[in-house]
């Protein structure tokens, strides 16, 4: 017999749970065993819906004998009769249906994830090298005495085991949830993220503040820099282990970060009195050639102390 169309039953996430071929129109849908498509949904009537061809690849859906009726594409308001395309979703009871004709045009083939650069060895080596180089740069900056073992051993002792633990954790979750460890891709994401974070947090912001004689970067952004880098790292890790849509993951991560920033700001506020030991001023000193600002006079500097007095006098 010739197949005319497919009726697809979708799950809560919109993925296809079952697919039924249609060999003749009309198709009657309901709980009764006399239906062409039998549904076990208790919120569906014995004889609920009739589907007919409507031309141009569209279909007509019509309520037969139901109190609950139907809704289309989660729009409000019950309908009794409608013409739908292959992309509309009809909801009857708690069941979602989609009708796609035999000649429905599917989107073109997506590239296999296995071919992406992030899953290849060169990317992993680049990532790990970037991390090690960043670390070496930090070490070199404070390398002011002849103790070469400090430079060689510290990244091995500190960063590498931590990186392995982190990547191992994600690979394990990925293996459990989606069957793929994606070890290389996780390593690339984590090492690049950490390297970037170290560069920005330990070097760039400090030197920018030094050059401009400001404390904007280190003070104002200090609560935001971490989430801004941790956010994307977390997002890409999640994309690899989870099959939830990317948009939804993005929203989840954004909400998580917003919460973290919020909690950070609140605890900062709460602990500001007990954080007595900290003298807060811009500590980064760079080479004098970086300096772009003209210095204040001593008197202008001392005049700034009047503001301090009113601050501590409360």
């Amino acid at each position: 017999m010739e197949r005319l169309a497919w009726i697809e039953i979708l799950d809560r996430h919109g993925d296809v749970a079952a697919r039924h071929p249609v060999h003749a129109w009309p198709v009657r849908v309901g709980r009764a065993y006399s239906s062409d498509l039998v549904l076990d949904d208790p919120y569906v009537a014995a004889s609920h819906l009739e589907i007919n061809q409507a031309g141009d690849g569209n279909h007509q859906v019509k309520i037969l004998d139901s109190i609950n009726g139907m809704t289309i594409d989660a729009r409000r308001g019950k309908q009794t009769d409608a013409t739908i395309s292959g992309n509309n979703v009809v909801r009857i009871g708690q069941t979602q249906l989609r009708i796609r004709p035999f000649d429905y045009v599917v989107p073109s083939e997506r590239l296999l994830p296995g071919n992406a650069w992030v899953r290849r060895w060169p990317a992993m080596i680049t990532g790990v090298l970037a991390l090690l180089l960043t670390h070496l740069l930090m070490q070199w900056l404070s390398y002011d005495r002849d103790e070469s073992y400090r430079i060689l051993f510290s990244p091995l002792l500190g960063d590498i085991p931590l990186l392995l633990l982190w990547v191992g954790f994600w690979a394990l979750i990925g293996r459990v949830l989606s069957g793929r460890a994606n070890f290389i891709a996780h390593t690339v994401i984590a090492s690049m993220g950490i390297a970037l974070f170290m560069m920005l947090n330990n070097l760039l912001y400090g030197y920018v503040d030094f050059a401009l004689d400001s404390s904007l970067m280190s003070n104002l952004l200090s609560g935001f820099i971490e989430p801004l880098i941790i956010g994307p790292v977390l997002y890409y890790h999640l994309c690899l282990v989870s099959r939830v849509s990317r948009r939804r993951l993005g929203i989840m991560v954004a909400m998580l970060l917003a919460t973290l920033i919020g909690i950070g700001l609140i605890t900062d506020e709460l602990t500001s009195d007990s954080a007595l030991t900290a003298m807060e001023y811009s500590r980064t000193i760079g080479p004098p050639s970086l300096l772009m600002m003209q210095g204040k006079t001593t008197e202008e500097f001392i005049a700034g102390a009047n503001g301090l007095k009113s601050k501590v006098d409360e």
Binding site: D273, M279, Q294, G295, G307
Partner: peptide, 16 residues
């Protein structure tokens, strides 16, 4: 905290 307030600081490039 019983005895002291928090430190308040000012810092700047200065031509001395």
């Amino acid at each position: 905290i019983k005895h002291f307030t928090k430190f308040a600081c000012t810092d700047s490039v200065v031509d001395i």
